[in-house]
């Protein structure tokens, strides 16, 4: 008992105000900073491309303000350029963003004690980046309450940055007409590789990631980015099966 008591006390002494909503908010923002560095070229290129595709200022800003989903915004711009009708663009958005349903399913457990308004706000901000940052903080079993403030901090910084960069692309992008050909689009795979690497600590994780990568190439020719969903489902299945195989092996030993 005394040991427990002193450990508890030491824990409090080490982090006297680390669990307050404000410090959790800024901790979330700080942990999202590397991802923001990767997102900056994206937002600027999106604004530039949208302007050259003939989208209006209002529609471009509206997309970043209300849709807030980078990949589907890029797809939308390319479809507008190709003259595709808006209902088809909305349908394509649905398919491209379908993966976020899996993000929502993952967060159900972590958000279960939040009120509906909090759930709506945080669900709106479930981008690839904020999801990755928030889920790793939630998964840390340190008993810190109020991690939704951490999640909010990550979301607000991603959102602010995305809209600012879209605006810069729309306005200043005209000064650099060839910016979309600079190859800054490598920022996305670079960021995502950095996110994936810490996950690769177990054999099932490796199996799931290798499977997803292989299927994403094999199914890459499918229309409307359906290959992405197929690769994701195959990867998850591989991970779960591999996990089962290894646990059975252990039981036999």
């Amino acid at each position: 008992m005394p040991v427990n008591h002193s450990r508890q006390k030491r824990g409090i002494a080490i982090s006297p105000k680390n669990n307050s909503p404000v410090s959790l908010f800024f901790e979330g923002a700080k942990d999202t900073f590397p991802l923001i560095v990767g997102a900056i070229p994206f937002g600027i290129i999106f604004g530039t491309l949208a302007a050259t595709a003939g989208l209006s200022f209002g529609a471009t800003m509206g997309m970043s303000l209300f849709v807030f989903a980078g990949a589907s915004q890029f797809v939308c711009v390319s479809l507008v350029t190709a003259g595709v009708a808006w209902p088809m663009i909305v349908l394509t958005t649905f398919v491209v963003n379908l993966r976020h349903m899996l993000y929502g399913a993952t967060m159900v457990f972590f958000y279960k004690n939040l009120n509906p308004l909090w759930k709506m706000v945080l669900a709106f901000g479930l981008t690839d980046e904020t999801f990755a940052v928030a889920v790793s903080r939630y998964s840390k079993n340190d008993g810190v309450p109020g991690k939704h403030y951490y999640n909010l901090g990550s979301m607000v910084f991603m959102y602010g940055n995305w809209n600012l960069c879209t605006f810069i692309g729309l306005t200043a992008g005209k000064a650099f007409p060839g910016i979309s050909q600079w190859g800054l689009d490598f920022a996305m795979p670079a960021t995502f590789i950095g996110i994936v690497i810490p996950y690769l600590v177990s054999k099932p994780m490796w199996a799931s990631v290798i499977t997803a990568g292989t299927v994403s190439i094999l199914a890459g020719g499918l229309p409307h980015k359906l290959g992405l969903m197929m690769a994701a489902l195959a990867g998850v299945a591989a991970g779960v099966i591999c996990e089962k195989v290894f646990s059975e092996k252990k039981e036999r030993i």
């Binding site: 899996l102 995502f192 799931s208 992405l228 994701a232 990867g235």
Partner: peptide, 10 residues
Amino acid sequence: YVPPVVLTAI
């Protein structure tokens, strides 16, 4: 497995 798998597929 969702986060690493989806990102890898991208």
